[in-house]
């Protein structure tokens, strides 16, 4: 890949999505952007870059951003955050939110929908305790393509075998040809919306629990801080934030601090999640 092409694409991706691409990851550009070039009937990456450079073709730029920011995920990824959600955070909120009887959850980079749907299945299993409560799951992603996939609730055999217990497959999925269709009742529990973490999320409202896992790793320090500071402003003092296993707030911002003994869970710097 030509140096000027790498620079063009890395600058574009940083600006559009916050994604920071080091030169040792240039192979990712080649593997992920060749299908984009083919889609637009271009011969290869050099021609793709020329279209970006000269024509500033928005459709091409949008496809490039989508291709580079689409990340794999799985149901109940890492297990523990979901155990904490079910066993500690929700019971805690059921006590604290007695007056409003409302809980809001945000999956900030929901990709194919496995994370918000995992939460929805947990909540469905707890429905007796949640009777009379309004629990909202908002799921956002920068990629419109991934949001469409997430909304469809249609998964491959490979996808339903990664993280999803067989009992939940039996309970909440139906076989549809060679795919597996998630039950409409679970799908309707999640609201999907396109959202770029580079923007201010104020319009989304306040959230008691935020999942923002395995996204910050792609950002530089300044962007991480900006995203975390924005998220902190959208949470009450007892709000909870989940980050991915390889992510931390330490050395990035004081707007969050880790919850002792709960790996991956953070609370506001001036707050207390209370578990």
């Amino acid at each position: 890949m030509r140096v000027q092409d790498f620079e063009l694409l890395s600058t574009l991706l940083k600006k559009r999505s916050g994604l920071v691409l080091s030169e040792d990851k240039s192979y990712l550009l080649e593997t992920r952007l060749m299908p984009v070039a083919r889609k637009h009937a271009l011969k290869g990456l050099e021609e793709l870059c020329e279209v970006v450079r000269v024509k500033r073709d928005e459709a091409v730029i949008s496809d490039i951003t989508e291709a580079m920011t689409t990340n794999e995920t799985l149901f109940f990824r890492d297990t523990r955050p979901f155990d904490m959600f079910r066993d500690h955070l929700i019971p805690n909120l059921l006590e604290k939110r007695q007056s409003s009887r409302r809980i809001r959850i945000w999956c900030a980079a929901c990709s194919g929908g496995q994370e918000p749907y995992s939460l929805a299945m947990i909540l469905k299993e707890m429905q007796a305790k949640l009777s009379g409560w309004r629990v909202e799951i908002m799921a956002t992603d920068i990629s419109v393509e991934m949001l469409d996939k997430a909304k469809s609730g249609l998964y491959t055999q490979f996808e339903v075998q990664r993280g999803l217990p067989i009992t939940l497959l039996v309970k909440y999925f139906k076989q549809n040809g060679d795919k597996w269709q998630l039950d409409s009742g679970i799908r309707s529990m999640v609201q999907f919306r396109p959202f770029n973490l580079m923007e201010n999320p104020r319009s989304l409202g306040e959230f008691d629990i935020v999942f923002c896992r395995n996204v910050l790793i792609y950002f530089d320090q300044d962007t991480k801080k900006m995203v975390l500071d924005n998220v902190a402003k959208m949470m009450p003092k007892d709000g909870a934030l989940f980050l991915g296993g390889a992510e931390t707030v330490l050395g990035v911002t004081d707007s969050f601090k880790p919850v002792t003994g709960r790996r991956g869970l953070y609370q506001r710097g001036d707050g207390d999640v209370g578990i």
């Binding site: 055999q157 075998q161 217990p165 067989i166 497959l169």
Partner: peptide, 21 residues
Amino acid sequence: GANEYIMKPFDSEIIQSKFTQ
């Protein structure tokens, strides 16, 4: 009474995921 179920074809990731569950 099966505890889990893997649909073939499988790979190491699926086995690891199911055995972890």
